[in-house]
Amino acid sequence: MTYKLILNGKTLKGETTTEAVDAATAEKIFKQYANDNGVDGEWTYDDATKTFTVTE
């Protein structure tokens, strides 16, 4: 399945997608991606749209 991440960081904003077997796997990938890019904030997930959002 395709999952989407919306980044609302102070210095980085944008979107990315990943292919993952489930939401938990996608979350791990996205949290590593956000960490690698210096984004740390409040996480939400919308199962209907398979979208994670992180807001600093």
Results as ranks from 00 to 15, higher is better:
34 A>I: 06
17 T>P: 02
12 L>T: 11
26 A>E: 00
49 T>I: 08
15 E>F: 14
34 A>Y: 03
9 G>Q: 04
19 E>L: 14
20 A>Q: 05
6 I>Q: 05
27 E>T: 04
51 T>V: 07
9 G>T: 14
30 F>W: 02
15 E>N: 07
36 D>V: 08
28 K>D: 07
42 E>P: 05
36 D>S: 10
19 E>N: 13
22 D>N: 08
40 D>V: 14
52 F>P: 00
18 T>W: 05
39 V>L: 11
11 T>L: 14
52 F>K: 00
29 I>M: 07
38 G>K: 08
1 M>E: 14
43 W>N: 00
14 G>F: 13
23 A>M: 13
13 K>Q: 12
15 E>D: 06
26 A>W: 01
45 Y>P: 00
52 F>S: 00
34 A>D: 00
39 V>N: 03
15 E>Q: 11
37 N>I: 15
30 F>T: 00
25 T>N: 08
9 G>W: 05
30 F>V: 02
39 V>I: 15
34 A>M: 06
22 D>I: 03
6 I>W: 04
13 K>P: 05
9 G>R: 05
25 T>S: 13
44 T>R: 08
42 E>L: 12
3 Y>T: 01
2 T>M: 11
15 E>K: 07
34 A>L: 09
53 T>R: 07
27 E>L: 14
26 A>R: 00
51 T>P: 00
37 N>Q: 15
52 F>A: 00
36 D>P: 02
19 E>W: 12
16 T>H: 14
54 V>G: 01
20 A>Y: 03
11 T>I: 10
7 L>D: 01
25 T>D: 13
27 E>P: 00
43 W>P: 01
4 K>A: 05
8 N>E: 12
47 D>V: 11
30 F>K: 00
46 D>H: 07
7 L>A: 04
54 V>E: 00
3 Y>W: 08
5 L>V: 04
33 Y>L: 06
42 E>T: 14
10 K>V: 12
51 T>Q: 04
39 V>Q: 04
12 L>R: 11
48 A>K: 14
6 I>A: 04
34 A>Q: 02
56 E>F: 09
8 N>Y: 11
21 V>T: 13
16 T>D: 04
1 M>P: 14
1 M>W: 13
17 T>M: 10
4 K>W: 09
30 F>H: 01
8 N>F: 11
3 Y>F: 15
35 N>S: 15
45 Y>F: 07
28 K>F: 09
18 T>H: 06
5 L>F: 05
24 A>Q: 12
19 E>M: 14
44 T>D: 07
50 K>W: 06
7 L>E: 02
52 F>R: 00
27 E>V: 05
40 D>Y: 15
30 F>M: 03
37 N>M: 15
21 V>L: 11
10 K>D: 07
40 D>T: 14
39 V>T: 03
2 T>Y: 13
21 V>P: 10
53 T>I: 09
20 A>H: 03
39 V>A: 04
31 K>R: 13
56 E>P: 05
12 L>Y: 13
27 E>F: 15
35 N>L: 14
45 Y>H: 02
8 N>V: 13
46 D>M: 05
38 G>E: 06
55 T>L: 06
56 E>A: 08
15 E>A: 08
4 K>T: 14
37 N>Y: 14
23 A>E: 07
53 T>M: 09
24 A>D: 10
17 T>V: 10
39 V>R: 02
15 E>L: 11
8 N>G: 04
9 G>M: 11
20 A>P: 01
16 T>N: 05
53 T>G: 03
39 V>Y: 08
36 D>Y: 09
19 E>K: 11
20 A>K: 02
32 Q>E: 10
23 A>W: 12
44 T>K: 10
4 K>Y: 13
52 F>G: 00
35 N>P: 02
48 A>G: 10
43 W>A: 01
8 N>I: 14
51 T>M: 05
34 A>S: 05
49 T>G: 05
18 T>Q: 06
17 T>K: 08
5 L>K: 00
3 Y>S: 01
17 T>H: 10
49 T>Y: 05
30 F>N: 00
45 Y>N: 00
41 G>F: 03
29 I>A: 07
54 V>S: 02
19 E>A: 09
40 D>N: 15
41 G>Y: 03
3 Y>E: 01
10 K>E: 08
9 G>A: 09
27 E>H: 14
7 L>N: 02
8 N>W: 14
35 N>G: 11
42 E>H: 15
25 T>I: 08
9 G>P: 03
27 E>K: 12
21 V>N: 12
8 N>A: 08
10 K>G: 11
22 D>H: 04
31 K>N: 05
